[in-house]
Design a protein around this nucleic acid. Structure first.
Lengths: 191, 191
DNA sequence: ACAAGAAATGAATCGTGGTTCAATTCTTGT
DNA sequence: ACAAGAATTGAACCACGATTCATTTCTTGT
């Protein structure tokens, strides 16, 4: 009962994420999500008051997954410079691995209500990075700076540098290393 | 006649830009644009085959204005570092001056066809910046780097750092100077 | 001044896709 | 096994705003 209820909610979110990763937000009609989840269109509304609420949940879950992956990679490293390298490589690598999903999460036009979730996605990454920057500055590994502004700019730079390749389908092999160098310089990694 | 024809086309584009700057893309129904331009709804379609074509034109014109302003400011400066400073200050200053328009041009959800124009807007800025970076590298004023990647990242960083403040309505007074320092470091301005 | 054709009008049409809900199927306690 | 009530169904509904087009108004050449 309750288990079945929960299960179909989970299936609906998973189906929405799958379609998002395959066809982008544009392919995510409620009917398509319901069909993929194996439920009727109307049943979606037993779990979510509106489409925007469903996709807020989907974006939240997907964002969490991305942030977790980045945080896990950074946690393995000791220095601020290495943590930042891990962030850049993990974020970019994952984006290039699932380009359609990355584009949807980062840049594709969505309803305003879902757009709000996207800002949260970006902010979550920025907050994570701000922590590393802040620690690095305190430890004297990075030049003094406003960690909030720096981390926001880094997220913007990563997203922008990847959206082109994501749309075009390819990225030069040097893109990620070059981004790492650029961002290390921006943070003032002391040699 | 022909003059009147041209005049009303210009009025329609101007009306669309004005509404975009006041209420964002969300406020830009064809009916609203037509009313503001002082023509009937249907008359818009004498000048543009579809709404997307009208807004492609509007975004193109607005982008050109922004790029021109930035280019003009940079042209007054001699060194790469000063040109980049001018770019950051002009771009940011203008965005904070017209926040609604900046948000619409940079980040607001729009139809896919208009989204394409937005990429062109960002690319135009990036190309401009890439020129300064390239010249700076050749002159030994900046460290060696891929100007294309750097300029893309700079545009992303600027946009991201400004979208938050644009949405919130305020930016700290240090935002622009701090951005300038950050970006100078990223480019490796030699002291 | 007039007719022929171009331009402008704006109310009606149309397509899309989110949302609803009366009918049906399943679950559970006795 | 049965009835009461919850869950599910999916076709119909509806809102919205872009687009169309029959009608009216203007322009121009004779």
């Amino acid at each position: 009962m309750q288990a079945r209820l929960t299960a179909s909610r989970v299936r609906i979110v998973a189906a929405a994420l799958a379609i998002l990763a395959e066809h982008g937000y544009a392919g995510c009609s409620v009917a398509a999500v319901a069909e993929r989840a194996g439920v009727a269109t109307g049943s979606v509304y037993r779990h979510f008051p509106a489409k925007a609420d469903l996709f807020a949940e989907v974006f939240r879950a997907a964002s969490q997954r991305e942030v977790d992956a980045v945080a896990r990679a950074a946690a393995r490293e000791a220095t601020a410079a290495a943590k930042i390298r891990a962030v850049v490589e993990t974020f970019s690598g994952r984006a290039l691995q699932s380009p359609r999903l990355a584009y949807a999460l980062l840049a594709e036009p969505v309803d305003p209500a879902v757009e709000a979730q996207r800002l949260i996605f970006r902010r979550a990454h920025a907050t994570l990075i701000a922590g590393y920057v802040s620690a690095g500055v305190s430890a004297g590994e990075l030049l003094p700076q406003d960690p909030e502004l720096t981390s926001t700019a880094v997220v913007g730079a990563l997203a922008e540098a990847l959206v082109g390749p994501l749309a075009a389908g390819v990225a030069g092999p040097d893109t990620i290393p070059n981004l790492t160098v650029l961002i290390h310089r921006a943070l003032g990694v002391t040699p």
